[in-house]
């Protein structure tokens, strides 16, 4: 991983079109400003992971996995059989 030290007000450039400016920094948080073309998606990593995982979850509900899940649930304690309503 490339490591660069920057202070608030300083900027770095990624490729030809993307600029990242450090707007503010505290001991616990850094505030960044990003200038990028509309074609470049900028998104928090955890949102990106969740989006991809949601695509996989909506795609992957296989019969085999449901059968295995049903089998394994037979051995579960009864306290989880009913959802609160």
């Amino acid at each position: 991983m490339l490591v660069i030290r920057r202070r608030p007000g300083e900027t770095l450039v990624i490729g030809e079109n993307v600029e990242v400016e450090v707007l503010d920094a505290t001991p616990s948080q850094v505030k960044l400003g990003i200038r990028a073309p509309k074609s470049v998606a900028v998104v928090r990593k955890e949102i990106h992971l969740t989006r991809d995982q949601n695509f996989a979850s909506a795609r992957e509900i296989s019969h085999g996995a449901l059968a295995r899940l049903s089998d394994s649930l037979k051995n579960r304690p009864d306290s989880f059989k009913n959802l609160p309503r």
Binding site: T50, N54, S57, E60, I61, H63, G64, A65, R68, L69
Partner: peptide
């Protein structure tokens, strides 16, 4: 949890591969 809110984890259940849950979200 259980009184005000219910928490569910979305599962990914592929034919080949482990069943996983999204606890990040």
């Amino acid at each position: 949890p259980g009184v005000d809110v219910l928490l569910l984890a979305l599962l990914c259940a592929p034919e080949n591969g482990p069943l996983t849950a999204n606890l990040l979200a």
